[in-house]
């Protein structure tokens, strides 16, 4: 009887360990396998185009891109779109990282999470980024890119899901 219940305990323990391992391996593979992908779309919508690569190669002054994404506010938001936004933001970030890697050190990319009522939020607004009122209590959620060179700063674009042509 004891060996039976011992065995049961052991199996259940093994299952629990495995479940934790399962989540851990997925988290690790998320970082390890970054960029390992095949783009099957006809026009290679999700791959940097030759034109983009040419532009990146011809940058002649240091540029600084800042991706504003309200990760925390989106995580707390009750809007289903905010969850989709959070799944989408890492892809934008990876695309920017890929661009940065191809720009020969001329393009620096940072990510900022502009918390509500913070200086970063003021900065994002002053750069002209538009916010979505999806946060808890109607606070703003930003997903946008701002770029600066040595002399001036400008908001480049609000980023929308599904617009990936680069």
């Amino acid at each position: 009887m004891t060996t039976q219940s011992n065995r049961k305990l052991f199996s259940l323990g093994a299952l629990a360990v495995l479940a934790v391992l399962f989540v851990a391996v997925i988290l690790i593979s998320n970082t390890l396998l970054r960029g390992a992908r095949v783009d099957l779309t006809q026009n290679h919508l999700y791959t940097l185009s030759q034109g983009t690569k040419n532009i990146l190669a011809s940058i002649d002054e240091p540029l600084h891109f800042t991706l504003y994404f309200s990760d925390k506010a989106a995580a707390e938001s009750a809007q289903p779109e905010a969850a989709a936004l959070r799944a989408y933001a890492p892809r934008v970030r990876e695309m920017l990282a890929e661009m940065s890697a191809r720009a020969g050190g001329k393009l620096r990319v940072d990510t900022i999470d502009p918390l509500p009522f913070s200086e970063e939020e003021d900065r994002a607004t002053s750069l002209g980024l538009q916010a979505l009122p999806w946060g808890q209590g109607g606070t703003s959620i930003f997903l946008g890119l701002a770029g600066t060179n040595s002399t001036k700063g400008k908001s480049l674009m609000p980023i929308q899901i599904g617009r990936c042509k680069t």
Partner: peptide
């Protein structure tokens, strides 16, 4: 975040865009 990464729907939607990501 780890739990939200377990969503079938998100992984399916990612593949359904036409990009076969190893992840």
């Amino acid at each position: 975040d780890a739990i939200s990464g377990l969503s079938f729907l998100q992984h399916f939607a990612a593949i359904a865009k036409g990009v076969i990501d190893m992840r």
